[in-house]
Structure formats: structure tokens, C-alpha cells
Design a protein around this nucleic acid. Structure first.
Length: 631
RNA sequence: GCCGGAGUAGCUCAGUCGGCUAGAGCAGCUGUUUUGUAAACAGCAGGUCGUGGGUUCGAGUCCCUCCUCCGGCUCCA
């Protein structure tokens, strides 16, 4: 007999029993003494067992990984000459990379899916086996699987586990499902080129992406969610909202903001400016181009030249600015500073241009010209903790104002083993990292430490927003910069009368305004809260007889600071309502002869419908209240 | 930059195997209608089929070049 703990309950089982014999029907695999294992595992000694189902992250990963093997199995049957790359589970499903002569077509995907279905329905047992490295090398060499050979060359162990189902075999750590029939429902979603090992200099493989679930219903739900996500794409919503546009003649990644988009930008930047002034920032403005010399001082000319647009003026080389930092450094350097003046906080909504590679530009999220809400804080090392705390506070306040309730915080640290790759002394790094981490702890902000992720110039905190559909968006960043003060020679005169290097904290709250607005459109699905909506109120008349009254009401609303659009056209009221519902205007004011006679107005809320009769004062009170609440 | 897919009216789309003058809905314009909470009616106008080249008696349709967009890879000092 062997003792086990099953879901916390201690009991005895027979020797040699397999997990499978104890497992409930929905168990995909198990965690035994902390290790995920197959259900075929034999219990030989004390085992603390927890079942893994599709509800567990690890369980899903195993499920998807097994589906990727099923995919590879099917591909090998239909395309015997295809060579196998890697096939992991990812956040949302799985992929498998293949080296094939001809890229897969949609028809191929259909055929592969059909073959997968056939293999799954056969209920093939999935078996773990141990091969010696030599035997596995021989096997893969025989089949010409050079990518697999490359992978196993890198495995140190003498014995390697493989998983086998029918005539298909794949080197794999596991664990896996024990039977292909458990893979209830799946779909191959797309095929794309992918470099072998993500290395551009190596051959391009064909990557097939897919998703799978235990039941057909779950798959259907997932596909429905995908559809919904597609419908909330900012590029699709923009067709109705009419905020921005791009033109082939203007160039890729260059956004033209239309009137309504420009209002939205202004609302956001007005909010931003007011908040920064309140918090002791000084707003500055820097030119769009600058001599190459400036970028040589900052180092961008050496490190970042490929992404910079260069031009020449009167035989002098100039660059269109890809960053705002150097200009702020120049402003600080323009005269000597006393410790008494610090901290100095320069903030700018600076538009920068970066030559992003042609294949990556996308909507508002990846563009070549964008405005960043940059600021640089110049302070003493002693002031750094409270400055970082204030910045974090500003970020969290702003994120909340824009309706995001979920965030993900990452703390990127250096890799002390690669000391020479970094600017700044180890003392500066240690101090800065401690400051950042201490602030996160004090503010009780959950965060993830990522050693080795810091840029060469300093450690940082990144804040990512999770939107209504659970997708994450890079927004705020708080970074120390040890490089620029050194390169520009930035000092302050201390209490002791001597010069000390100033500390620079570089931070952005919204990040790229373009990307932020793209995210905001998707987060709100185009239904902006009243304070953000480009047009807040539409004044609609039922008949021409109400036009004069409508003009009066509209003028009063505009006087009260509201953003108003009017429609006094000859359309029927239903058509006008439909038009403005489609444009997602938060409020409509409907005016007919009745309202004109009584001096009242009828309110309608977007998506809610008729709210009844109000006086202008009542309506204004309601608007003001809602704007104040920013909801 | 690389792999794959796509580009027909302002927008959404149809256009068969290469064969009559390239169609529809919405939007626009004109007229009629004066209307009460998600689409009044009629008429008109709108296209070098992304660009340039090629094949062909004949190209929106087939081939090549370039441009742009979409999905990925990669990049994000």
C-alpha cells in the first residue's frame, strides 16, 4: 500500500496504481508533489495529488500543447516532407512551426483540421517514452528532422522524454493528455510566417495558430468573443466615430486627426495639462527637428539612427526628433542649478517621429508619428523616493480617470552579471532599484519583478492597462536615466558648494497619445463617457417650427461649455435619432412645438432611450454632474 | 524588412469560365414631405476596378513591378 493525499485527504492505495485509475473524468493531468505529470504515472511512493482540469491555467496549457501535437501529427500525415519546428501552448491556444516547401493555404488548413478530427476521434493513446539522446538523434537524422536535431543538441541530459501517438513522435517534456479523444473541439485560426527561433537571419517557417477546448460549446463561445473583439477594434469603430484617418498619399503610420478626434485629443491633453500644473510640473515645448549634434550628444545618433528620419539643411545634418529627452536636457543645462531649486519637472506633449519598420505599423497602436506625454524630473538622490511616489500616484490617478480598473505593474531590473552593458555605477542602480521597489511596496501596488529587463540606461516601472476584453496596453512608464545626465553633464550645486550629478527620472503617463486613444476607443467600445465624448449633446428638431428654439437651446449649451452638434434638417425625428445613436453621441435633446411652447426640452440618453421632459437648468445640472464624475 | 492574404463609388459589398455600356445598399445632391424617440418618397450624380507594365482579338478577372491595408514574425537603444 502507498499513502497519498488527494485534494487534501490522506488515504491508502494499492501499489502500482496509476493516477488514471483515481482520476475524475475531467482531469487532464495532475500535479504530484508539486510536479505536473501525466495520468499514466504510476504511484510508487507517497504522493500529494491535485487534479488539473481545463479550469486551471496549467491544465489548459497541457490541453493546448497536446492539441499542437495533434496538429503536427496531422501535418506529418498530409505533408510527410514537412519538418517540425516547435509547437508550444501560448496564452490563447497554441501554434506549431513547420518547414515546408510551399506555404500552407486556407484549403490546407481545412484539410489538416479534418485529419486532426479523424485522429482525435480514433482515441489514440498518448504515451511518454524515454529515449537516449543518441537514439533520438539517430531517429531524427533518419527522418531528416534537422530542426528537431538542433533542439535536442542543446539538451544536456543523456535521456530525453518523447511523446508518441500512433506513428507520430515528438520530443517533449510534457505532460500531455493521455488520449487524443479528450481534445473535444478545435479550430485552426491562421497561418503566418515565423523565423526559426525568432532569428531574422534564419529560415522562415510556416506557423499555424489554433485554439481548442474540451467541448464544442466552449469553442463556439470563444469564437464569438473573437468576433466581438473584432467589432470593438478601434479601426472599425472609427468608421462610425470619424475620429482620424490615414491616406496612402500621406504615408503609412501617419495619422490625420479629424475634427472629432482633435476634440478628443484636446479633452485628454487639457486634463493632462491641468493635472500636471497642479502637481508642480512646468510645461515646455521643443522643436520637431534638431541638429545631428544634439543626437550625437544624447547617443541616439549611434544607437537609434536606423529609426531616425534624417535630413540636411544648408549642408548641416538634422534629425526629426524621435525623442523629447535631449531637448529637456538642454533646457536644464542652460544654466547652473542650486539644490534649492530641485526638483525641476519639465513636461511636454511632444510629437516624435520614428521610422518603424513597414510591416509593423498598425492602426493607432503602432505609428510613425505620435505624441508622447514625456516628462523629465531633475532631482537629488534624496528626493528620488518622493518623486517616484508622486509619479506613481499621478499614473494611478490618471488611469482611474480613464476608466481602467485593472492594471499590471512590472518592475524591470538589471542583470548584475552584465555590469558593463549598463550606463551608471552599480551604486546608482542599487539605489534606484530600491527606490522603485520601495515605492511599489509602500503604495501596496502588486508588481512583477523582471530581472534583466531594464534598459541599459536605468531600471523602470511599467504599468499596463487591462481593458474590458482583458487585453493589456502599455501606458505609463517610470524610468531612471543614468545615461543622459552623464552625456549632457548635468549637475546641481549642493549644500556643500560643490557640483553633484543630478538624478533624472524619465516618465510618461499615457505613453503615446495615439496608442492611448486607440486603446480608449476599444476599452469604451466607442461609447465614451460624457466628459470624453467629442460631441456631448445633439440638439434635434422634430419640425422646422422648432428650429429657432433649437438654435437658442444649442447656444445656451455651448455657452455652458458643452460640445454640441445640431441637426435641424428635414429628416424625420426617428432618422435623426438613429444617425446620432450610431455616432454614439451621449445625449440627444429633442425639440418640437411642445417644447418650444413650454420652454422645456426632452432628453434622450444614448443606448438608454427617452428620459422625459427637463428644463434647461435641470439638464445642465445633470450634464455637469456626469462630467464631474467622469463616467 | 520577411511570410501569407487583400485592394471594385465617400462607406459596406456583388461582379460566374477572360466576352455586351462594371452593379446594389448606405452616404451625397435636387425636389416633394413638416414629421414625436433607431432609416419618409422620388429623381440625379458618383468608378481610369490601388499603381505601372505584360499576355490576349478582348483584362475588374491571368502574369509581373511598386504602393497601401490586414494577420503574423521581428523590432521597441
Amino acid at each position: 500500500m502507498v499513502k497519498i493525499t488527494l485534494d487534501g485527504v490522506l488515504s491508502d492505495v494499492e501499489d502500482g496504481i496509476r493516477l488514471r485509475d483515481l482520476a475524475p473524468p475531467d482531469a487532464l493531468a495532475a500535479v504530484v508533489n508539486g510536479q505536473p505529470v501525466d495520468l499514466a504515472t504510476v504511484i510508487e511512493e507517497y504522493a500529494d495529488i491535485h487534479w488539473l482540469t481545463f479550469a486551471d491555467e496549467v491544465g489548459r496549457e497541457i490541453f493546448w500543447h497536446s492539441t499542437s501535437h495533434l496538429l503536427a501529427h496531422a501535418v506529418k500525415r498530409l505533408f510527410p516532407r514537412a519538418k517540425l519546428g516547435i509547437g508550444p501552448a501560448i496564452d490563447d491556444g497554441f501554434y506549431y512551426d513547420f518547414d515546408v516547401d510551399k506555404p500552407f493555404t486556407d484549403k490546407d488548413l481545412k484539410a489538416i483540421e479534418k485529419e486532426m478530427r479523424r485522429l482525435a476521434s480514433r482515441g489514440l493513446p498518448i504515451r511518454r517514452r524515454i529515449f537516449t539522446k543518441g537514439k533520438l538523434e539517430y531517429y531524427y537524422r533518419f527522418w531528416g528532422e534537422d530542426l528537431k536535431l538542433e533542439i535536442i543538441e542543446e539538451i544536456e541530459d543523456a535521456e530525453i522524454s518523447v511523446y508518441e501517438q500512433d506513428d507520430f513522435l515528438d520530443v517533449c517534456r510534457g505532460p500531455h493528455l493521455d488520449d487524443t479523444s479528450k481534445i473535444g473541439s478545435f479550430k485552426l485560426l491562421s497561418v503566418a510566417g515565423a523565423y526559426w527561433r525568432g532569428d531574422e537571419s534564419r529560415r522562415m517557417l510556416q506557423r499555424i495558430y489554433g485554439i481548442s477546448f474540451p467541448t464544442a460549446e466552449e469553442l463556439k463561445d470563444y469564437l464569438k468573443r473573437l468576433e466581438q473583439a473584432k467589432a470593438s477594434d478601434h479601426r472599425i469603430l472609427n468608421r462610425k466615430l470619424d475620429l482620424f484617418d490615414t491616406y496612402e498619399e500621406v504615408g503609412p503610420g501617419l495619422i490625420l486627426w479629424k475634427p472629432k478626434g482633435t476634440i478628443l485629443r484636446k479633452v485628454i491633453t487639457d486634463f493632462w495639462t491641468a493635472e500636471h500644473l497642479k502637481r508642480g510640473y512646468q510645461i515646455v515645448t521643443s522643436p520637431h527637428i534638431a541638429r545631428a549634434e544634439l543626437w550625437k550628444i544624447s547617443g541616439h545618433y549611434d544607437y537609434y539612427k536606423e529609426n531616425m528620419y534624417l535630413t540636411s539643411i544648408e549642408d548641416k545634418e538634422y534629425a526629426i526628433k524621435p525623442m523629447n529627452c535631449p531637448a529637456h536636457m538642454m533646457l536644464y543645462r542652460s544654466r547652473k542649478h542650486s539644490y534649492r531649486e530641485l526638483p525641476i519637472r519639465y513636461a511636454e506633449l511632444g510629437t516624435v517621429y520614428r521610422n518603424e519598420r513597414s510591416g509593423v505599423v498598425q492602426g493607432l497602436l503602432r505609428v510613425r508619428g505620435f505624441t508622447i506625454d514625456d516628462a523629465h524630473i531633475f532631482c537629488t538622490p534624496e528626493q528620488a523616493p518622493s518623486e517616484v511616489a508622486d509619479v506613481l500616484d499621478l499614473c494611478l490617478f490618471t488611469i482611474d480617470a480613464f476608466g481602467y480598473s485593472d492594471i499590471k505593474v512590472e518592475l524591470s531590473l538589471w542583470d548584475p552579471d552584465k555590469g558593463d552593458k549598463y550606463a551608471g555605477t552599480p551604486e546608482k542602480w542599487e539605489h534606484a532599484q530600491e527606490v522603485l521597489e520601495q515605492v511599489l511596496v509602500e503604495k501596496k501596488t502588486p508588481y512583477k519583478r523582471i530581472p534583466g529587463e531594464a534598459a541599459f540606461y536605468g531600471p523602470k516601472i511599467d504599468i499596463k492597462l487591462l481593458d474590458a476584453l482583458g487585453r493589456s496596453w502599455q501606458a505609463s512608464t517610470i524610468q531612471f536615466d543614468f545615461n543622459l545626465p552623464e552625456r549632457f553633464g548635468l549637475f546641481y550645486v549642493g549644500e556643500d558648494g560643490s557640483e553633484h550629478e543630478v538624478r533624472v527620472i524619465h516618465r510618461a503617463v499615457l505613453g503615446s497619445l495615439e496608442r492611448f486613444i486607440g486603446g480608449l476607443i476599444e476599452h469604451y467600445k466607442g461609447d465614451f463617457p460624457l466628459w470624453l465624448a467629442p460631441y456631448q449633446v445633439a440638439v434635434l428638431t422634430v419640425t422646422d417650427a422648432a428650429a429657432d428654439y433649437g438654435a437658442e437651446v444649442a447656444a445656451d449649451l455651448i455657452d455652458s461649455g458643452l460640445r454640441v452638434v445640431t441637426d435641424f434638417s428635414a429628416d424625420k425625428i426617428g432618422a435623426k435619432i438613429r444617425k446620432h445613436e450610431n455616432q454614439k453621441v451621449p445625449y440627444m435633446i429633442i425639440l418640437g412645438t411642445k417644447e418650444a411652447g413650454q420652454g422645456t426640452l426632452t432628453l434622450r440618453r444614448h443606448r438608454k432611450g427617452d428620459l422625459g421632459s427637463f428644463t434647461l437648468a435641470e439638464a445642465l445640472r445633470r450634464f455637469k454632474q456626469e462630467i464631474k464624475q467622469r463616467r
